[in-house]
Design a protein around this nucleic acid. Structure first.
Lengths: 193, 193
DNA sequence: GTCTATAACTGGATAGAC
DNA sequence: GTCTATCCAGTTATAGAC
């Protein structure tokens, strides 16, 4: 594996083709053609399609992390509501900006239902979001800005909402996702306004 | 198309195989073998795989309908909360009972991302849920049991939650979905208890 | 209605030359 | 490192016998 330039081009091209055609319907021949080399040349870098698919999967999963989206340490009693809102808004914005990324993730998620290895990874990531929200809300409760009741349930609700917003975007709904997130957040906060 | 018995067996078998292996990885040969006939015999009933896939899609879509899950006419001022809860619980229960069904839907969703016809159908179904909840909440507001503010947003939130519950189930999360739904419903109702 | 047989093609993957 | 050439398994689909 000397020519890292080719290697990189294979990965980038595959990423784009997966987004456009899906994993199954992207053949090694298509990838090779798009990169401008031949099939055996691709096999020089990735010994099988599975290896290439797996590699991209790992790369992508690194990007999806609760701690990257919601920085618990930065939350204070005074900024709690504003920060919970804005971190969500940012996540929504990111998904709107990089539809490519969302599509590929979605592709892997749907495939994961029949692939135990992928399923477990997504399970862990989603679990990370649910647990992360529990931690965040627990902190909020200590600050006295979040109601203590049904904290886990509220955390799961937040996780489900932020997660499904991406799906609705992909489906093409032009609705106010920020407002939906705001409504979900409003539900976990102690009554104000 | 004389032997409707064979026809029915093909459809049922395909349904099961799609749930187990996915649409792409279920071949006409597999279907034939599982039914106990040969490939050309399957082609006698369905002139192409696409036709078979389409037929199953139509069948399945008929089952997913807001009006079937939430019977607006049955809602009154007094039963509103209880009915909104129980209709959701029933939907959750149904999905738990028929994991096969959920899996096949998931399979079609995957295809729909790159198939305009399927995508539009799913779009309409989901839109039907969002609009249905708007109608329902509007009725609730007239009864005085639902807050009038941000009614559309609240409806979209309900739609997202009930929709994603199915996904979380497929991923294998053993959490209290009823409680999550109850929490979402609680958010749309005027303050009580 | 269901069969055998086969066409026509596409997919992943590799041997061996350069 | 990248190529040509090739293999082989598996796919949709059909012609034609029974």
């Amino acid at each position: 594996m000397n020519n890292t330039e080719t290697y990189k081009r294979i990965v980038d091209t595959t990423y784009a083709l997966f987004a456009e055609h899906g994993i199954d319907k992207t053949s090694m021949a298509m990838i090779a053609k798009e990169v401008g080399i031949t099939k055996p040349a691709v096999y020089y870098y990735f010994s099988s399609k599975e290896e290439l698919v797996d590699f991209l999967f790992e790369e992508i999963c690194k990007e999806i992390d609760f701690a990257k989206c919601f920085t618990i340490e930065a939350y204070t009693k005074n900024n709690f509501q504003a920060k919970l809102l804005s971190d969500g808004f940012k996540m929504i914005q990111d998904q709107e900006n990089d539809a490519f990324f969302s599509r590929v993730i979605n592709e892997y998620i749907l495939v994961s239902i029949r692939n135990e290895k992928y399923r477990q990874t997504f399970y862990s990531i989603t679990e990370g979001f649910m647990n992360g929200f529990v931690d965040l809300l627990t902190k909020g409760a200590q600050f006295g800005v979040v109601t203590n009741e049904k904290l886990t349930t509220k955390a799961q609700l937040l996780s489900m909402v932020i997660d499904n917003i991406g799906n609705y975007m992909l489906m093409g709904f032009k609705i106010d996702y920020n407002e939906i997130w705001a409504e979900a957040v409003h539900n976990v906060l102690k009554s104000e306004d």
